[in-house]
Design a binder for these strands. Structure first.
Lengths: 186, 186
DNA sequence: AGCTAACGAGACGGAGCGTCCAGTTTGGAG
DNA sequence: CTCCAAACTGGACGCTCCGTCTCGTTAGCT
């Protein structure tokens, strides 16, 4: 994936088309390569030249977006763990609530379920860094088993988002952070 | 879904076919209605008569299985919350590790991502009861915000399983339960 | 100006979709 | 036992999307 021969403009067009399609296909039908090509005003061949599947397009689009805005996973470090976790959770949830980001992630998640290779890349390039950034922050605060605590922190957020059990609100977020803090025995 | 006209034998054959296909297609290609029909030795028409999609077949198969074995979500209640949660988590993880159950759930999860109706049914008929059973057990033990704590308990297990970040082992399970207990401020 | 990569247009065989039909089996009620 | 209705078979249908191929055109770089 991610052949660099693709003209930047073409790549951007394909990314945008995939995002828009994911946005208004939300929860309905799945993305198709032909649909992406048509929406991007681009030959099917051009899409296949650079990406093997719709999931790969989405993944690449996601990488391009995060590289644009920040580049790296940033976990706040003010010295106060509690307020840092609150800021982190609020930020994550804010991203998940952004319609475009949400559509992108849901469409990508759908593709991950039937593409083991893509799932592995997703873990290595996105999930892993995110988890280990949180884990590092926790570790610096002297939290034991910081990797597990990072999952305890992220897991329920992911669970709520993916399964849509209930919407996020600010009371829940702060209560969640309080539970995390208590769980580490402070 | 779940038209009762279907002959029991036919229904069983289709369920079995879907399970077997999910089992050895694991992570590779997606299930197809034609594949299920062929594997079940049944006309395509027969499958479409009773289920509108592969996800519906899987969901129905899952319901049939859980109705066979237990019927209801059972959360142990020995009076000792900690050991009950440990038993519960161990049981859940045991199910997730069973190859057939795992293949079924993963295939179903894949379909849920692009079928909003099915996802809603899944939440109402399976996730909801599971969460509220745990929540009730917690509530009886005097835990406040028991619904949120139930998600704190289930979320990381789901996260680990779905994203395959790391395998489950017994040390992690007991540490997880300990963190949950501490998080409720006991 | 000219070379080369990237691209556009469109065709291809194949798989799966979802629906239709006409004929056969099967189970139960009378 | 008979017979009727429901369930099932087998196959065909037009369609969308897949993934690959070819050929001719465009666009960037030197």
């Amino acid at each position: 994936m991610l052949l660099l021969m693709a003209r930047d403009q073409t790549r951007a067009k394909v990314h945008a088309a995939a995002l828009l399609l994911a946005l208004d296909a939300n929860g309905a039908g799945p993305l198709t390569m032909e649909g992406i090509a048509a929406r991007a005003g681009v030959s099917k061949q051009t899409v296949y030249r650079s990406w093997p599947s719709t999931g790969a397009v989405l993944f690449d689009a996601l990488l391009a977006r995060s590289a644009d805005e920040s580049g790296r996973v940033v976990v706040p470090n003010s010295g106060d763990l509690s307020s840092d976790l609150l800021a982190l959770a609020t930020g994550m949830i804010g991203e998940l609530k952004d319609p475009l980001e949400e559509a992108l992630l849901r469409a990508l998640t759908a593709d991950l379920q039937s593409d083991a290779v893509l799932a592995a890349q997703y873990r290595e390039l996105l999930l892993g860094p995110q988890l280990s950034a949180i884990s590092t922050r926790l570790s610096e605060a002297g939290v034991p088993a910081s990797g597990d605590v990072a999952e305890l922190f992220v897991g329920p957020i992911f669970y709520r988002w993916l399964l849509r059990t209930r919407p996020f609100d600010s009371e829940w977020v702060s209560a969640h952070v309080e539970r995390i803090i208590r769980s580490i025995g402070r």
